[in-house]
């Protein structure tokens, strides 16, 4: 059980960073933390005691102890999506820096109401 709760703790740490930090880059780091904690959680879902990797290394091998490969495939997809979002966030952060000359979100406040 402990690893699962560690993942949730990691999610909360990431959320804390997203909510309280003022520097855009730190927000992005917090965000990556949330993402990877959830990926870790998802990978843990496929855990099986005394499981072996779901790869056939010799012909006619027993497949009963294979861990569930589906969560790993899903996590890979989620990582790809995370890559895209992180890249876009960083690109936005760079553009924001070019315009505002600061990474501090308290100074980036023109929209309100």
């Amino acid at each position: 059980m402990i690893p699962y709760f560690a993942c949730i703790l990691l999610v909360l740490i990431g959320l804390y960073a997203v909510v309280t930090k003022r520097n855009i880059v730190r927000i992005i780091i917090g965000f990556s933390l949330v993402e990877y904690a959830i990926n870790l959680f998802f990978a843990l879902v496929g855990f099986k005691r005394e499981g072996i990797p779901p790869i056939i290394t010799e012909l006619g091998q027993s497949r009963s102890n294979f861990v569930d490969p589906l969560p790993q495939a899903l996590v890979l997809t989620a990582i790809v999506i995370g890559l895209a979002t992180t890249a876009l966030m960083l690109a936005l952060a760079m553009r924001i820096y070019e315009k505002y000359r600061t990474f501090d979100i308290t100074e980036i406040r023109r929209l309100r109401g």
Binding site: A87, L90, A91, M94, R95, E98
Partner: peptide, 13 residues
Amino acid sequence: AVFLALGASRFVM
């Protein structure tokens, strides 16, 4: 392309 866009971004921008 992502690396170039982020790392060598002067021209992309």
